[in-house]
Design a binder for these strands. Structure first.
Lengths: 214, 214
DNA sequence: GACAAACTTAGGTCGAGTCTAAACTTATGT
DNA sequence: ACATAAGTTTAGACTCGACCTAAGTTTGTC
């Protein structure tokens, strides 16, 4: 049986990856300097020395030039739930995973630095895109919970659970961003958010502590 | 003391209101006929016999031409919580209010008819705007809960509660829309959603049954 | 080295959103 | 009733993101 995931990694693939990163890097630099809405795709293309069309080929939407955490952000919680150990609830798996990310100052949960936070907060297009990510994330989590608890597709239970769990993660993300905008250092934010995470997950405990225990 | 809310209702005000409704009516008609993304603002302006600029004066974003339920949608739950009777929890007030809206086939909670549901589902711009509404709604609800329980602004408790309560309302809205898209009659949908509402609110009962009791 | 496949490029179109200056309409003061 | 101020509508131009196409360039393969 051939390894399907193995990549030949030809010259073309490497060049594409390089071009993609080069464009993304130039774009991020410009966005942080001058704000997302004050930079046009044409300027990004000029800075990266490619055609406008090449930029939009790699990044169909302008927002994707600034937010390339999509995959990790959307799939993270669903993966955490699927990969948790035996005897563990979805709730505690997500709590543990979050605490680890907080301790590591993971950008995916909001530790993106003040400049990035300002860029996002200052652009309706970016906050809108972030909302889409939250939405997809909740749906991915709902699927993970539904397929595990083996209920029918119409059952609302896993969706309510995913809404609450994803919702708490979202609130803590927003909290991290807000404190970053206020100029607090990551260490201090990590301590505060750890406490808030404890409070928030404790509030879900009565409803979800016994749900989805493997 | 003069009644500040009283309006002179001059000719100018009346004409503006008329124009606004006329534009909105023509727009909705065109959108339902041909789909939101297949109608341009210029066409709406032509149908209403005004200048393009007049359309965008009244409706800064194109999506607002189709979604004029904003105010009721966003403020509804916060108002319900503020106006509930003594001894009642926020949870049960919202549950009761929702059941009444379901029984009345209220468009604001998703009973908008198949054509409207198709229009919304078929347009990323509209679903995105709806997400913004959900967001504002949750924040309005969080404010109502926070000012009542008298906690500090940094306290995460009311935000978690608003996330859970607003989230359930959102899930039930989506469920109503989904069933409408599937072609089921309102009566049947109302019965099914009433049951699901019971299940969903019951799931929040352990966490929120004793919270925000007036 | 030739050919096919994949990628990049220039140039154009469309539509939403914004701006401005001028025309028009309603309200107000004498 | 008239003049003038204040508010509204209008045409036209402009920017930008998104999409399309046809031609050109690079990479992979035989």
């Amino acid at each position: 049986m051939a390894a399907v995931t193995e990549r030949p990694a030809g010259l073309r693939e490497r060049k594409k990856q390089q071009t993609r990163e080069h464009i993304s890097h130039q774009a991020t630099r410009l966005f942080l300097e001058r704000g997302f809405d004050n930079v046009t795709i044409a300027e990004v293309a000029a800075a990266a020395q490619v055609a406008k069309m090449t930029v939009t080929n790699y990044f169909p939407r302008k927002e994707d030039l600034a937010l390339d955490l999509q995959e990790a952000y959307v799939q993270g919680p669903a993966v955490t739930v699927r990969e948790r150990g035996p005897g563990e609830s979805a709730l505690s798996a997500l709590h543990d995973s979050l605490l680890a990310s907080v301790a590591a100052h993971d950008p995916v949960i909001g530790f993106s630095g003040p400049a990035f936070a300002r860029m996002v907060a200052g652009s309706p297009a970016l906050t809108g895109r972030l909302r889409e990510f939250h939405d997809e994330r909740e749906r991915a989590l709902a699927r993970a919970l539904a397929e595990e608890t083996g209920t029918t597709a119409a059952d609302i239970r896993p969706r309510v659970a995913a809404m609450q769990l994803g919702g708490v993660l979202r609130l803590l993300f927003e909290e991290t961003q807000r404190r970053t905008l206020d100029g607090h250092p990551d260490e201090e934010i990590a301590r505060a958010v750890t406490v808030q995470a404890g409070e928030a997950f404790a509030l879900l405990e009565p409803a979800l502590g016994g749900y989805a225990v493997r």
